[in-house]
Design a protein around this nucleic acid. Structure first.
Lengths: 337, 337
DNA sequence: CTGAAAGCGCTAACAT
DNA sequence: ATGTTAGCGCTTTCAG
């Protein structure tokens, strides 16, 4: 592997000039430029990224910290992040935190030592102190969903409350009259907001009762159990709005086992818009978040921040969209009532 | 951030000693060891990974090159790789190649410049020349599925041919008599082997005909189209063995649309064992690969290779297992005939 | 057992 | 416009 020195020698100039040429920093004569170009080609020179990193404290590497890449929500997000990153010449380090603060901290330590340029957090454990500390240490951070106070970093999220309302409205418009909600763990801001949106939309309805809200765990199993509990408690519900798609899938499974028709007896609506919703039977109505776009946006913001072209930290709230499918399709619906 | 110099000064020894202590290379007196420990703690010293990388050409970073993290087969694999890597103190860079040689090559270039310690390929485009070149340049490589000739690198794969046979046997034992196969793109060695296994198992049966083998694309869409074509051509098939789970899901969808009962009229069996197979209706019988283990093994091997403790390159063929579920459950089956 | 010193390959003043 | 040079923070001979 040729070094910058070799190139300098062959081109008959100093290493500084080569460096300037490489980084387009400072002037360099057109003629010498040509000489340099030739030398580089002749030697098949490729600048060494590690040396650059050490000298310039910039590694063109970002990290993506998420709870678990095998949770179906994240692969698409990761794909988007990596796509954008590689488009801008950055490389992505993948970290699974399992939402455990300890793991997160330990990743952060490692990443700092590696002169990572920035971090994307798609995690819930992170507290604002951590974020501020990172920012203070000069490591740009961008978050997904989690909003640390004092706006110490940019945030990308989607309209959870509005999404929940969309779901309820849709179910009502399909003729449902007793709509239950399986909510996710309340440590998750998303779960909280969706629950709030649900409550807001239904609390003025005559059938409303807190017993229609059941806790789930954002996973299939939890959706199953919550549904069982719910159907026992309220055999008369005619719709379930689950706080995420995984729990909605669980609801589908549970209802099927009980012999309850979907959507005939009970309509089911999820939240997130992961691919799974298209392969269930019946296909699942869901409030889709623009997952890929969220990933793309979050990494574009991080890169801007790294390169110093970000005006100011901001919170971006992306629109969600109701995707109506079979699981909520009821004949007695009156969409245009 | 304290540097090794600061520690040396505070401990009253030279940087060389600190380095030896840090890397457990060379002797260091127990007493000085204590002094060093204290100094490190006092300064909260953390060795700089980039500097280490430059000086020692070892970055404790590996890369995982796969076709697409959003393809449901890969997240679990990636999770396993990252789990093992982080357990051994390595960090993982994620690369999506889309099975395009150009992208792969360009990743390799970048990774080389970053002094990556090794690469895991879960890709099909890579030709053996590339692998050998990498190996020659001193970058350890381990492959998934793809076996480059001359055994220039270790390979982890699973028993595709045997798996296909398991599938056919299972279908036969469930009473199926006309078993079709939707095979994947023949550039994929896995698709080829599964097809071969299928053919071997059925070619001696009286109903056998090449028209029972239909090409798919390893995705849901292709599974749907292939199934439509198949059912038109052979309305009398009573089982479909798909070359992977995604196509099996497609088959399920297509059959459902046509009003064909599964497993009543047609049984369906997939291959891979991805999570999706548990949420279809009916749940999908599949030949499960030990995906997580494959990822864990492949990364353990790579790390061994990096650390020079790997005896010799080898090909590891992991067992697959038939996971019987509803989609092949036929009353007229005689499991124990 | 420990220290001095020469890099690793590049960047960024500072000087010319 | 270009060259000189001092680092970046650590590893690793080679002496002692």
């Amino acid at each position: 592997m040729a070094t910058i020195r070799d190139v300098a020698k062959l081109a008959g100039v100093s290493v500084a000039t080569i460096s300037r040429y490489l980084n387009k920093s400072g002037y360099v004569n057109v003629e010498t430029e040509q000489k340099i170009k030739k030398a580089i080609e002749a030697l098949n020179y490729e600048p060494n990224a590690v040396a650059r990193g050490l000298a310039g404290k910039k590694t063109n590497t970002i990290a993506l910290i998420l709870p678990d890449i095998s949770n179906p929500f994240f692969p698409e997000l990761a794909r988007a992040v990596e796509d954008v990153a590689s488009m801008y010449g950055y490389t992505v380090i993948l970290c699974n935190s399992d939402d455990e603060g300890v793991k997160e901290k330990s990743y952060i330590e490692v990443l700092k030592k590696k002169y990572i340029d920035g971090i994307i957090f798609a995690s819930n454990t992170l507290d604002s102190a951590d974020v501020e500390q990172m920012t203070k240490k000069g490591i740009p951070v961008v978050c997904l969903d989690r909003v640390p106070p004092k706006q110490s970093c940019s945030v990308v999220r989607s309209k959870n409350r509005e999404g929940a309302k969309l779901a309820v409205e849709h179910l009502l418009s399909m003729g449902c009259r007793k709509i239950a909600h399986i909510y996710g763990p309340q440590e998750f801001i998303t779960a909280k907001e969706r629950l709030a949106g649900y409550e807001e939309s239904v609390k003025h309805l005559d059938w409303y009762s807190p017993t229609f809200m059941i806790q789930g765990d954002f996973r299939i199993e939890g959706g199953i159990r919550a549904t069982e509990l719910l159907m026992e408690r309220h055999p008369d519900v005619d719709a379930i709005f689950a706080g995420n798609d995984l729990m909605a899938v669980g609801a589908l499974k549970a209802l099927h086992r009980m012999g309850v028709q979907v959507p005939g007896q009970v309509a089911v609506c999820g939240f997130d818009g992961i691919g799974m919703t298209e392969i269930t039977q019946p296909e699942l109505t869901t409030v889709a978040q623009p997952i890929y776009e969220m990933g793309a946006l979050v990494s574009r913001i991080l890169i801007k921040k790294i390169e110093g072209t970000l005006e100011a930290d901001q919170t971006y709230e992306l629109d969600v969209a109701l995707v109506p499918r079979e699981s909520t399709l009821r004949r007695n619906g009156h969409e245009s009532s």
